[in-house]
Computed example of a mutant assay.
Amino acid sequence: MGLNVKVEGLSLKKGYNLLIHNLNFEIKPGEVISLTGENGVGKTTLLRTLAGFLMPHAGTISAHENDVQIEPEIWHGSMTHFLGHHDALSPSRTVAQELKFQADFLGGEVAGIEQLNLLGLMDLETRYLSAGQKRRLSFARLLMVKRPLWLLDEPMAPLDVGHRALIAGLMQKHLSEGGMIIAAVHDPLPFETRGLKLERPTAKEREAASV
């Protein structure tokens, strides 16, 4: 895939509250970063900013493919998958209908039914699914269209042991094919990752950012 993403001097705010100050890192094909830190430290905000849903307070996020810079609207729209902490599913659609909707929306084909053990759930409305089943259904859209950067917010949280291993296998396959993953986690992922611990800004940093 050849995409690499660089974050330089990034500061993020939530309202008037400075969450992240002067963050720097780079991610390249085949790499996975585990975001850790206390609740409210900005892990979800960082993922949403990387996905293009939020604007930085300061600093830059740049993406390059084969040393050519990619316009933000292009790599946000066609090179990233964001899987939030809350599953974005329509409660009145069946699993089959939700899969088709997601495939049509992404411009891909329905995928992941067998890999994610969804076959026996196809006629159920999503409102009746357990938290783990909803997470597996949400994960299917990452398989419908190949995009190099997966931004995952607590991807394993609602899953049982067996399905954690299943999802871990799909994540490792993505990495082996040159993909990248940035995941906010409380518990370690079941394979080797590069850790990035977010710390709360100091009082001096918060004061400087408010000027």
Results as ranks from 00 to 15, higher is better:
Met1Arg: 02
Gln115Ser: 14
Ile70Met: 14
Leu19Lys: 01
Ser62Ala: 13
Leu149Cys: 04
Asp104Gly: 01
Leu18Gln: 00
Lys100His: 00
Met122Trp: 04
Val7His: 07
Asn117Met: 09
Leu10Glu: 03
Gln102Thr: 02
Trp75Phe: 15
Lys146Tyr: 04
Glu8Thr: 07
Glu31Val: 05
Gly37Ser: 08
Gly179Ser: 06
Ala88Ile: 07
Glu38Asp: 13
Leu83Thr: 02
Leu129Pro: 05
Leu137Gln: 06
Val41Gly: 10
Leu83Ala: 14
Ile70Leu: 15
Pro29Met: 03
Val211Ser: 14
Pro190Thr: 15
Lys146Ile: 05
Glu199Ala: 15
Asp153Glu: 04
His186Met: 12
Val5His: 07
Ile70Lys: 15
Glu192Asp: 14
Gly132Gln: 02
Glu26Ile: 09
Ser130His: 09
Glu31Gly: 11
Glu31Ala: 14
Ser78Leu: 04
Leu143Tyr: 02
Phe82Tyr: 15
Gly169Met: 14
Glu192Asn: 15
Glu177Pro: 03
Leu170Met: 11
Lys14Cys: 02
Ile113Met: 12
Leu196Ala: 14
Asn24Val: 03
Pro158Lys: 12
Ala208Pro: 03
Leu175Trp: 13
Asp187Gln: 15
Leu121Arg: 03
Gln102Ile: 00
Ala165Val: 12
Asp123Lys: 07
Tyr128Gly: 09
Glu109His: 04
Leu129Glu: 01
Asp67Trp: 08
Thr80His: 10
Asp104Ala: 08
Phe139Ser: 10
Thr45Lys: 06
Leu99Pro: 04
Leu119Arg: 14
Asp187Ile: 15
Glu65Asp: 10
His186Leu: 10
His57Thr: 12
Asn24Ile: 05
